[in-house]
Design a protein around this nucleic acid. Structure first.
Lengths: 130, 130
DNA sequence: AAAATAAAATTAACATCTTAAATATTTTTT
DNA sequence: AAAAAATATTTAAGATGTTAATTTTATTTT
């Protein structure tokens, strides 16, 4: 699984590097773009990043003005995260490049084969906690 | 893929923690146990660990007497790694515990489904370099 | 054979992972 | 309402990931 992931990321990483993002920073931006404003816990789950890592990542992304962070009004423990305009801009620049690579992979590997793989991976993911 | 891996490792990590090893240290020991003495480059590939990480890991495992390291006689650039007796002992203690978990997963998830997943993952891994 | 190039491992620097502990806030108990 | 338990986030510390630079040894060029 590690090697498969590594083989895939070899194609994606150069795109991120060109824009100065790491994989994880990218996942945070992408999740916020796809699901809209969310609290840190939700982003951590969606981006598959542990809470301590996320804390530092959002610190950086906030400093660089890609996201903003504010405490929830109803629950003072929660921190809400939102993309800034700058964050949305950069997201819209990167997404198309990633899509090109994704589609190339889909074509090269076989569309139905890839779908099957994702389905099997999804069913593994779901047993969290048993 | 990340989430699937995480779901699986949730079952394995406690076993390693009980013996005081990290995932990566374990992969190094296991590879040396399965393939016998190998040079660092080969171990790095087999254990899916980058060379710089491996350097640090083998430093620790050598200090703790689980492996020994010596330069290749024919090629002075290469470093060969071997399990010590202590390393083999600990390996033989941990392997059965890991097997129990693996078989439980195999049973719970479905043997042929798991085989299919591993096959698909294997074929993804193989494109390295295209 | 000397110089240039290539290859394997290590070191360095910064980012992230992982577990545990600490903080702050909310909810539940008593 | 005060105390206790639970929840969300952050800090801390040690280990690994990632890229680049360095070191050492082999191989290739000239």
């Amino acid at each position: 699984m590690l090697r498969a992931r590594e083989a895939l990321m070899l194609s994606f990483r150069p795109i991120l590097a060109k824009h100065g993002f790491t994989e994880q920073q990218w996942r945070v931006l992408r999740v916020l773009g796809e699901k809209g404003p969310s609290d840190a816990g939700q982003v951590a789950f969606d981006a598959c990043i542990l809470a301590p890592s996320l804390s530092r990542i959002i610190g950086k992304l906030e400093n660089e003005k890609f996201i903003s962070r504010f405490v929830d009004r109803k629950d003072g423990r929660r921190v809400n995260l939102v993309l800034t305009n700058l964050g949305e801009e950069i997201l819209n620049k990167i997404v198309p490049d990633m899509d090109v690579v994704y589609k190339a992979i889909q074509k090269r590997y076989g569309e139905e084969k890839l779908a099957k793989l994702l389905e099997l991976l999804g069913s593994v993911s779901e047993w969290r906690g048993r």
